[in-house]
Amino acid sequence: MALLEVDDLCVHFTLPGMVLEAVGGVSFRLGRGECLGIVGESGAGKSVLGFSLVNLLAPPGRIVSGRIRLEGRELTTLSERRWRAIRGRRMAMVFQDPRATLDPLFTVGQQMHETLRAHRRLSRRLARRMVLHRLHQVGLEAPESQLARYPHQLSGGQCQRVVIAMALLLDPDIIIADEPTTALDVTTQGELVALLTSLCRTLDLSLIVISHDLAVIQQLTQRVLVMYAGRVVESGPTREVINDPQHPYTQALVDALPQMYPPRAPLRPIPGSPPAPGAAPTGCTFHPRCRYRHAGDDDLRRRCEGISPGLIPSGGSEVACHWVAQLIDHEMTDHEAIDAAQVHDESLG
């Protein structure tokens, strides 16, 4: 059994006069010690998905259907009181902006003690030892001297390390990190990626990394979900998804990276822009921007415009695309045709 199982999770935002689908039917499994990436552009629903996993969705956001199970235990029906035994202890979240996560009026030590003592009855001395242990674990230099510091006295990278240490305090099984490197400088980004990788390995921690940065996802994760307009369009081993993308959106995303081109060569951008919330196109939400939009016959176009594609296996990944589905069908027909031809030849020979 996987550590975390998410099935067909749907999150809606109910606003006066309309319902916005932020996450539309996302499913995945997360194993112990595994690192899963969720990649997509702003508005794709990655953060909403992350928040809904730890029941931190703010109204009007609401899980309308689907299941989240931690070691088989259903979480979506839990009361907020019961959630407190899960959040922090089993699943912890690291938010995007480390400076905004920390309270500017309290020292690092005070904030970490508060977190610890809210969940556990501990002596001050033991609490201090545990705090220092975690600060040491995240590679913060001279942890003792950091305890008395206020967040403004720390650099962005140091703040992020403190936030990760806080997430580790209660020894969770899963950490959900929302854009853990985005607010940091390039040199610090590399250090944070190395830190998260080594924590996963040494603590047997499972990690869900939400990011728009394919390079960070590639370095950190073993599997990845690519989201577009609230849906998973492709999922699979990170290496395969990035090196051999199957879905037209993933292909276009990788093709749009400037590092894939020689300096000043024409890039191949994705036309248009991601749909505004509530304005997702019918059928496949990516179809107005799809490079294969005019490649297929009328029948295919009708499906792309009218029917939302489900995930089907392709290569080592799963892909939600009518065009890919048709290609697979055709290939199979080709193979069948070859087999049939061989049988025909043999019978003649």
């Binding site: 552009e41 400037p258 951008p269 036309p271």
Partner: peptide, 11 residues
Amino acid sequence: LDLSVQAQVLN
């Protein structure tokens, strides 16, 4: 800008 749009503006 989003990645998919960034390439348009770079071009």
